[in-house]
Design a protein around this nucleic acid. Structure first.
Lengths: 125, 125
DNA sequence: TACTAAAACAGTAATCATTACTATTATTAA
DNA sequence: TTAATAATAGTAATGATTACTGTTTTAGTA
């Protein structure tokens, strides 16, 4: 199935690039609606899945609540505030030691890792 | 609200301690039913939440599918197989460097971190 | 041992996020 | 301009989890 351009998808991508707070599908929906009032939530979900699959954006699943989306697809770590539940990017670089250490004690193949940091964000302090 | 003993909760906990594969609530339900045929799925969920809150077990949320539960509440890393989606514990010790590095570039407080490793498990190789 | 208040239960209904379905519209290559 | 098909809007369906309700268990006390 070859990909065809869609204005809605472009708008979703553009919106996501303007945000650093990793919005949910619902938040993206209400915002993209300002430009495309008839867009449906299903279209938002379908395109978020597509963009994630193509590696243009990133899906972040926390334990609780809806999935969130990140306009920056390059691998990086995330911080989750235990008070306000906000999610932010961390500037630190990847710790390559992690994969090496994991491989030592493991009989399969370690390809990659993801990490979430928890604590209190600047605003909540 | 003070806690009262329940046979169902004990059975759920016991079952979870015998397993290393981090079963879902549904799997726990079908197994505990062998001992308590009338137990309801709601009871399983309620007790899993309770045990997690008390720090006796651990909830693991992946991006896809149901949450999983781990009878070992001590902090440790998990591996997720990209082929069979199995989840296993990793023997490696915590990398303390992670929290230190994260704190350097962050203006809030880093208390903790979680990590998930992805790759191919021994069985799938 | 019986009594009582409250916690836990089974069974079921409701919620929430997400996905699937369908008839219509937009895209794109010839 | 046409034709094939991908994408859409709108809606229905799904799946995981939580909430509700009348009944049963637990546990402290008489």
């Amino acid at each position: 199935m070859q990909l065809k351009y869609s204005r809605q998808r472009e708008s979703i991508k553009n919106f996501l690039m303007t945000r650093k707070d990793h919005p949910t599908a619902e938040v993206i929906y209400t915002n993209v609606r300002k430009e495309y009032p008839n867009i449906s939530l299903g279209t938002v979900y379908r395109n978020l899945a597509l963009l994630t699959e193509m590696g243009e954006i990133m899906k972040i699943s926390m334990g609780e609540g809806s999935d969130r989306f990140d306009g920056n697809p390059l691998p990086h770590y995330h911080f989750v505030c235990r008070k306000c539940n906000c999610v932010t990017d961390l500037a630190m670089e990847r710790v390559e030691l992690m994969n090496r250490k994991a491989s030592e004690s493991f009989s399969g193949i370690i390809e990659d890792h993801e990490a979430y940091f928890y604590g209190i964000c600047e605003n909540c302090l």
